[in-house]
Design a protein around this nucleic acid. Structure first.
Lengths: 105, 105
DNA sequence: AATTTGCGAAACCAAATGGTTTCACATATA
DNA sequence: TATATGTGAAACCATTTGGTTTCGCAAATT
């Protein structure tokens, strides 16, 4: 039972849920209204997202509002960091090449 | 048969492969040496990564060198963009709060 | 020419995944 | 108090996933 952020965002429905509640906290029923599945299926997605702390709950009477834990999203950004370094380096190398060509002319 | 970037990076072994060949092109055997699985298993991962164009092949005799398609990685970055906006907004709100506190004192 | 090496594909398998239906249990509302 | 509503959990199921073993084939090496 893998349960990390990358596995969490692998499912398109979960990505949609994340995008939805990023804007405002929502209840499971309200979230489910936006998809073509049952509330229970959404509930299972919410559990997975909660388990890897990508979202948080706030109980309000018998309703539960789910909202995004934005900071957790930064972990994906952090993983991307190493590659960002590479694609920026490639840009730099292109810059140097262009500079060399300019100097030669 | 889902085959998108997010599904591709969901598997930890695939993320490790990506990180490996980001530094230098490698053959399947060389890649497999770094993991506790068979070359064939790695081969299947490479196929998935190839199918969603995260990596590219370069044939050299009977060897095949795999390397990262760095630009494709940017698509993840692009998806993160919408959330980056949110977490930066929160920073701005904090900035404003601090500014207000400063003005009041 | 015979053998070794590097590789992908196919067949197979156990485990994980994503969904459904049914249920139990609070909290509102009549 | 009886009923409706919002929810998570459990049982179940088909499909997907990630792995292995076996195989065929082309390119190197002997």
């Amino acid at each position: 039972m893998r349960r990390d952020i990358f596995q969490a965002i692998a499912d398109p429905t979960r990505r949609a849920i994340i995008a939805l509640i990023a804007l405002q906290a929502m209840t499971p029923n309200a979230i489910a209204d936006n998809f073509n599945t049952t509330r229970q299926a959404v509930s299972k997605h919410l559990r997975i997202l909660t388990e890897c702390e990508l979202i948080k709950q706030e109980h309000q009477g018998r309703e539960i509002y789910y909202s995004l834990e934005v900071n957790k999203m930064k972990e994906i950004d952090k993983w991307l960091e190493q590659f960002r370094a590479i694609w920026e380096t490639r840009f730099n190398q292109l810059d140097e090449l262009l500079l060399d060509m300019k100097n030669q002319s």
